[in-house]
Each structure stands twice: as C-alpha cells, then as structure tokens.
C-alpha cells in the first residue's frame, strides 16, 4: 500500500508538472506529449518509456487496490456489531474517507484514460480517436464543457484528501515517524503535496474555464 502509494505520488507530481506546459501554448504542449513518446530513444524503442511507466503504474494500481480491499474486509470483520453511538475525536476527515475517496479516484482515472489516453473522447465535438484532436485541442475542448471541469475539480479535491492522509500514512507504515517531530513533518508534507499536486492539476481546467488558456 505504502510503496505503491509513494509511486503514485511521484507520478502525479511529474504529471502535474507536465500539464503546466499547457500555459506555454498549443505547440509546446503537443511537443511535450510527443517527446514523452520519444523519451529514452534510441536506447528505448518509440513509446518505450511510456510503456514502462504504464506497466509500472498498472502493477502499483493492482497492489494498491488489493491492499485496500484486504484492509477494508479485515476492518469490517473486526467489528461486526457497530456502536450505537461513536464519536471520532482527533482524526482527520481525510483519514476516514480513504476508501470512498479511493473508489472515486478509481472511477475518475478510468474516465480520464478514456477521455485523454486510449479512448480520446472529445466531449465537445463528440469525436473520438485521432479525430478528437491533438492533445492540446482535446484538453481545451474538454474543459470548455463546464461539467467536465467540475468532474475534474471534484476529482482533484478527492486527490487532495487522499494525498493529505496518504503521504503521512505511508511514512508511518514504512516506520519513518518514530518521534513526535518526524510525525509532525510527515503530516506537513501531506498538506504540502496535497496542495501542490491537487492545486497544480486544478490550474489547467480552471484556466481553460476562465479563458486564460484557449
């Protein structure tokens, strides 16, 4: 859980940074998408790097979801008679919404890949595949549809929650927070990554909606 989660943190950080290329205009953004496919050539074949990343992410996803299901099942078996009344005193909301938030993110990722990766569905023109347009056009067209932007922003809120708890939880699970200070730092890192990653991702759809990117 922790190791696959850390891999997702690294991926989302890099992906978020890459998305910010949208602010450099259509050409730069499409060049970037193209370079991702040529990355590592000639040692790697065309799209070699991309496929290594895809396989790695898929393995991590399977590990992450499997651990989540096991933990959820153990938890439901550990207390089959629920409390009539239970207060949660000091825990963060994010820590108690990891399961629902994770499921929401999974749905989002499926749509997101259909939208931008292997499906390429342009919700504005209704075109799919190559006709959906270059990566930049597809992205701008998508976020020009207001409810698409809303879906993405809601997903980024869920991502922020997930990262807020996930970051500190991973360090704790790996046994790196053995003092009050290191625990506090890990929690601060959770806030930082949640804001930087979810916030950074949100900039692009927001900018399209407000006409800063067109």
């Amino acid at each position: 859980m922790a190791v696959s989660g850390l891999l997702f943190i690294a991926f989302t950080l890099v992906h978020m940074y890459g998305n910010l290329k949208a602010f450099s205009g259509q050409e730069k953004f499409n060049d970037y998408a193209h370079h991702l496919r040529e990355f590592g050539e000639p040692i790697l074949p065309y799209e070699g790097f991309l496929w290594i990343t895809r396989v790695g992410l898929l393995v991590a996803l399977v590990a992450h979801v499997t651990s989540a299901v096991i933990l959820a099942r153990r938890a439901s078996r550990a207390r089959t008679t629920k409390y009539q009344y239970k207060k949660n005193k000091h825990s963060a909301l994010s820590s108690r919404t990891m399961r629902w938030g994770g499921a929401a993110l999974l749905l989002f990722i499926i749509w997101h890949l259909v939208n931008f990766s292997f499906g390429k569905v342009n919700p504005q023109t209704g075109e799919t595949g190559a006709a959906a347009g270059d990566p930049y056009t597809l992205m701008v067209d998508t976020f020009d549809v207001w409810w698409m932007t809303v879906i993405y922003l809601v997903a980024m809120l869920a991502l922020g929650f997930h990262l807020h708890h996930g970051t500190w939880s991973a360090t704790q699970t790996l046994g790196y927070t053995n003092t009050a200070t290191s625990r506090q730092r890990a929690k601060q890192a959770g806030w930082l990554l949640a804001i930087v990653i979810a916030g950074g991702f949100s900039l692009v759809p927001l900018s399209v909606m407000f006409g800063i990117i067109e």
Binding site: R74, K89, H90, S91, R96, W168, Q172, G175, Y176, R183
Partner: peptide, 28 residues
C-alpha cells in the same frame, strides 16, 4: 483485529497518552 490505516483515534482515546510513533516503531 483489523489492520492499521493510521487514522489516529487510538492515541486520542488512550488514557495513558501512548503516542502514535509507537506504531511507526512497530512497523520499523
């Protein structure tokens, strides 16, 4: 018993104020 997901309700309920870092030590 269930698996820990580092929610932290335990430490706030503990009458002896055992801190969460013991769980990190356990994992280590």
């Amino acid at each position: 018993f269930g698996g820990c997901t580092n929610i932290g309700e335990c430490a706030s309920a503990c009458p002896k104020e055992i801190p969460l870092d013991v769980i990190s030590q356990l994992n280590k």
